[in-house]
């Protein structure tokens, strides 16, 4: 399972990476915004994306739309982990095809629960 974590704050990438490692996911790469993430996704065989919303450059919602619009990536599960908490934003993310939405601050248990739920649906 190859995972890409997209967040502009290195500390948050580190926290998510550590949590994922605790859950048994060792193969985790990082990108600091959508512009960096998209070419990585197009060139690498990633199985899963965890992304923030608010980032300089390409934002998470635009990354999500770009992934869904790319026929090679459109199936890729995307979990949004963000401080953005407006109802309209969550609805917009759902309409854009997000697979899960976690608001910061979050707990390790929440991340585990959402990941399990997403993988359950994929099977």
């Amino acid at each position: 399972m190859k995972i890409l974590v997209v967040d502009d704050f290195s500390t948050m990438r580190r926290i998510i990476k550590n949590l994922l490692r605790d859950l048994g996911f060792q193969n985790v790469s990082e990108a600091d915004d959508g512009n960096t993430a998209l070419p990585m996704l197009q060139n690498g065989d990633y199985d899963f994306v965890v992304t923030d919303w608010n980032m300089p450059g390409m934002q998470g919602i635009d990354l999500l739309k770009a992934i869904r619009a790319d026929e090679n990536l459109s199936h890729l599960p995307v979990l949004m982990v963000t401080a953005e908490a407006k109802r309209e934003q969550i609805v917009a993310a759902a309409q854009a095809g997000v697979n899960g939405y976690i608001v910061k601050p979050f707990t390790a248990a929440t991340l585990r629960e959402k990941l399990e739920k997403i993988f359950e649906r994929i099977k």
């Binding site: 608010n54 908490a85 407006k86 309209e88 934003q89 917009a92």
Partner: peptide
């Protein structure tokens, strides 16, 4: 209404 706003400090 869906522009990024950052952490909500007065939810």
């Amino acid at each position: 209404n869906i522009g990024a706003e950052g952490p909500i400090i007065d939810a």
